[in-house]
Design a binder for these strands. Structure first.
Lengths: 244, 244
DNA sequence: AAGGCTAATTGAATAGCATTCGATATTTTC
DNA sequence: GAAAATATCGAATGCTATTCAATTAGCCTT
């Protein structure tokens, strides 16, 4: 009896160890060579098993990749939660900055996996990273945002999903821009302006009134009249220009 | 002499016609079956040529796909320019709404191609849609934005590339959200809130303080930078004036 | 316009790879 | 401890992109 239970325990452990080995090998090789470039043979060899054996763990190369991707997203979620747990800032915008910093860097470093996550859906319509994994990841932002609203730091009428699309969408696109324009320099230095811009955007669009101390109306009025004057000048200059 | 010229013309025309046939066939089949699902044999058959002939026009399946993608992006650029040319609104925000509407719908309808554009880079590192094609496409936004700044509708200190990342990034991400959450309903009705949100965001974050009448430091800074901008304009206009 | 020369076209042969499958080894059960 | 069940293996299969030797069509000279 006891031996039977023990046996199946060690057997299960053995299988799980082997599955981890496959997954680890697959992750490394997918990262190194991309999906198409990865050879099942090499994954098998690297995991120390026969080629055919992989197929008793995963039905296809695509499903193996899927498992790798899900593990990857779970890891990201944990990391993001870790960032939120360890950041000292208690205000919304300070915490948002930390999350933006983490996310942007992550997206740049793991661009391959991010792309594959959405490319897989196309190539093999049966296989795609489950919505739950992605939803779990973005839940970190959702929590932060809702807490900001509860604490009155954010406008109560702000719409969560819009803010989420803006946050993750802009950062992902920025990551691509950084990748394309500064292939070499992907340091924090290159990323900081993007992060700052994102925080500023949330401050002005979702932030509740706050610090913007109202200035002297007189200053403003004087500036405005200067402006009107200049505008009129430009108009007359433009008309006198020969080219136009 | 004359016949020679005419002959080579017709010969060139013939080759170009054949190339178009290949491209058309490839586009249809890539759309229907995706990159991996598309068979070179079927593309050849559909184009009315032998399998091997494709390879005297394109070096590989990936390069054929690349050509299709570039044609696709060129088409998008033309369409976007067309939208900008035909929209009645003359103010920045009205025109931005039109562009957002067009882009969001396009991204949803052509999600496959959009994804493949960035997925190809991974699969085959030698082949990727040229930056110029993408840059040309986003130039439509750039122009609109710069004009808005010139006309004083947008804060002069707004940063173009940040605004661009926010615009295209958010819309692309929103498209994915719409795809994932409302697989069935991708109508304008589902898209309108996203477009409205984008316009509202640009209004509050980049717009120059309008009716709100809340005069805070941001407004002041914005007026000052508008002023600087106009001064510079006047300077350059004065220089170009013949009389002076 | 005939014939030689070049470029284009073809589809059968090649080669690379994911996946299958019959044979073999290991574990579980009684 | 042997039979049944399960796991592993890697050679064989099947499917495709790609190549290539043979063939055809276009072009130019005389």
């Amino acid at each position: 009896m006891a031996s039977k239970a023990i046996q199946s325990e060690t057997q299960r452990a053995k299988l799980e160890r082997k599955e981890r080995a496959i997954l680890d090998a697959a992750r490394t090789i997918f990262v190194d060579h991309g999906f198409d470039g990865a050879r099942m043979q090499e994954i098998a060899r690297s995991a120390g098993i026969g080629e055919g054996t992989i197929y008793s763990y995963y039905d296809s190369k695509a499903e193996l990749m899927l498992a790798v991707l899900q593990q990857f997203w779970d890891g990201l979620t944990l990391e993001a939660e870790g960032v939120m747990a360890s950041v000292q800032a208690t205000d919304f915008f300070g915490r948002l900055e930390a999350l933006a910093q983490y996310h942007l860097n992550t997206v740049i470093v793991n661009a391959d996996f991010i792309n594959l996550t959405f490319a897989l859906r196309r190539n093999n319509s049966e296989v795609s990273v489950s919505r739950d994994h992605l939803r779990h990841y973005v839940a970190v932002f959702d929590q932060l945002f809702l807490r900001g609203q509860d604490r009155g730091e954010l406008r109560a009428d702000a719409v969560l999903w819009q803010a989420r699309d803006i946050f993750y969408g802009s950062l992902e696109y920025s990551a691509r821009s950084i990748e394309m324009t500064m292939a070499a320099d992907r340091s924090t230095r290159a990323q900081q302006p993007v992060v700052d811009g994102m925080v500023a955007l949330f401050r002005s669009h979702y932030g509740v009134g706050g610090i913007g101390a109202t200035t002297d109306k007189a200053d403003l009025a004087s500036l405005e009249s200067r402006l009107d004057h200049l505008s009129a000048q430009i108009g007359s200059l433009s008309d006198r220009l020969p080219g136009s």
